[in-house]
Amino acid sequence: MACTQEKRELLDAYLDEELTLLEAKQLEAHIYECESCEQHLQELKRSVAIIQSASHFEAPRHFTEGVMNRLPEQPARTKWKHRIRRNPLIVAAAAFLLVFVMSMAGGMGDGQEMVVEGEGQFLLDREQNLVIIPEGSTVDGDLTIRNGDIEINGEVTGTVTVVNGQHLQASASGAAGEIEEINDALEQIWFQVRSFTADLIPSGSDEE
């Protein structure tokens, strides 16, 4: 224990590095002479050193996911807006003019690859399997998406057909024609037959 209350306070200030140079020198001189003050200072320093040797813990695994899962739901619209803005790669990779047929797999929608058929400007989000018709963009004629979802913020003049996917926007205002979702297996077969025959009738395409 420090020899006096006054010295004790000085020792605290000394540890906090709040004494002037002169005050510090004077206290050090006193400590040199006074055993109890010296011991007190050593004990305080030792206690601090012990506490400081406590190791640092990292947050548990999946901590961030846990937080994000607890955040309130956002309206879908703002969410997409931000995803597109935050992922310029998606936009850069996908925002080119698509003339007539675009198929990601090369084949015609066999398997689970997303296939888009249509004419106009749209964005592809491959990770989400999502096609977005951005605001201000128009797709002339029909639009068909297989194995993917569609969100229409712009305009589609023809009919929108979604095979094995969903139309994500609540209002149908973006499409001039009708919107058809085909998710049932039987319906899909019927659609294939229908579009196959439709493909045969107009000027024969060069697809195999």
């Binding site: 640092h56 901590f63 961030t64 937080v67 994000m68 956002q74 969410k79 931000h82 803005r85 935050r86």
Partner: peptide, 16 residues
């Protein structure tokens, strides 16, 4: 601005 996903970056920075 309403970008919820950006918040995960804040969590990553300060979680520990």
């Amino acid at each position: 601005k309403g970008n919820q996903e950006a918040f995960s970056e804040l969590v990553e920075l300060y979680k520990d």
